[in-house]
Design a protein around this nucleic acid. Sequence first.
RNA 1: GAGGCUGUAGCUCAGUCGGUAGAGCAACGGACUUUUAAUCCGUAGGUCUUGGGUUCGAGUCCCAACAGCCUCACCA
Length: 511
Amino acid sequence: MPESFDTPADQPPRDMGMHEAARRDKLQRIVELGHDPWGNRFDGHMPISAVRAREAEIVTVPIPEGSEQRSPEQHGPTVRVAGRVMLMRPTGKLIFINIQDWTGEIQIFVGKNQVGEENWDLAKCFDLGDLIGVDGELKRTKTGELTVFATRLHFLTKSLDAPPEKHHGLSDPELRQRMRYVDLVHTEGVAARFIKRTQIIRSIRRTLDDQGFLEVEGPTLHSIAGGAAARPFKTHHNALDIPLFMRIALELHLKRLLVGGFERVYELGRVYRNEGISPRHNPEFTMLEVYQAYGDYGSMMELTEALIVGAIEATGQSKQLMWNGQALDFTPPFQRGTYDELFAKCTNIDPADQAAVRRMAEEIGFNTQGVHPDVIKSEVFEEKVEDALSGPIFVTDYPASICPLTKRKRDNPAVAERFELFVLGMEVANAYTELNDPDLQAALFRTQLDGQKEDDSMAKMDHDFIRALRHGMPPAGGLGVGIDRLVMLLTDAASIRDVILFPLLRPEAEP
RNA sequence: GAGGCUGUAGCUCAGUCGGUAGAGCAACGGACUUUUAAUCCGUAGGUCUUGGGUUCGAGUCCCAACAGCCUCACCA
């Protein structure tokens, strides 16, 4: 055991606050009592939820006749727990401590006479936020609270900084994001939401695996950032001395795998888009893309419903749920409507009447000069239709010219076989019948629609992708799901930053 | 990228009309062997985000910077 775990004495004392000074004093006392303030392996403890589940094993011995005894004696199971000190209520020669692990919270009873002098001295060194281990007997207090009556205490790790206010936790959104480790421990519901996120993702994998899909991993560094209209992050490989881009989509490599004979593939992974941050956008986010050979966008619609219903069930929720105070019903089949139908319904304009559409676009302040009619229509759609959709609703059959990776309808080449799933104006999923004609794909890669900014265009020629299509990609359905947004819906989160553990923030100023 | 709002003790928040900086929790000392946000008595804790300006005097008014949030833009 080292002499001291503290800052060596020859170093000038740091400028520390009173909380840290008090905690370092106690740390020193813990060392003097012969304990390691940073703890060691601690075997044999049970999750607190499992300890709570043993309440039924407590037996109460009736008071013997003629006894002076006031309260009946109890015998409970011997348990060992470990957790973080959340609350302490010292009352003279006994202390009530609430400790928390990731399964729950339980009260510890530490009585001076019950644990003996050595344990008592150690208990007096506990601070809120410390990690401790406890051996004891599970019983109830006279107020009925399930409690571990400590027989032996173990010190597992000192906390040098004070936790936030015990009733309110952290509420400053900046602190919550920068110090997610504190947020997870001390803010009500945060840990539970991220556990739900994991359950949702696990459920999505299970649904896909059960339907015979193969999970794969494509490259995240691309020399051509294709598959979506978005600005990429640029980086550089030193040894090869080449520019590279962080991927903006999973699509083009998964389709190469369709050519390679992987008939059902998916990837669940991070993509990066060098764009603005908002309550619905983080520069890196998690995307699911699924491709199914010999399917089409109709097969993807059924799959989307199965994925979402599975995720709702995996989190133990009803298909009727509340999001930001609004009721949503995810009972399949979800509503559906074609792009043109919904356009006509929400705008009272015939979507085929280009002049009328242009007039409305100008009314909402969009500059239509030299812009492709379908881009104008899409602008009006986003403004007037998307926000009006409560959903969940599948919007189907988009103008072909704004869908350069999508197969056209057999009876109408101006319409693409595509759907997007909207919920309360938020786009959650996007699916296509995939274009597999290499000549048409090459032509569409060359097409830069009038009025579209180059950055926003999908017109990026990927010769290797065309070469892959030339070898024959089966007709297929493809689906993309924004996982963070789905998690927002299923955990009633108003901001994407509430479902991403470490969202992007500007660097903190040096202290 | 543009506009609006916010920034006070470790945390959560008050701070009136411009006139000596406040509370609760946390901390420290004391009392207390069945508490439940324990209670009671006492003590300490502040570059009011930063930098300018106006003023006899600025947490408060003005300007700028930094950070966060919201709306818009970009986008999913």
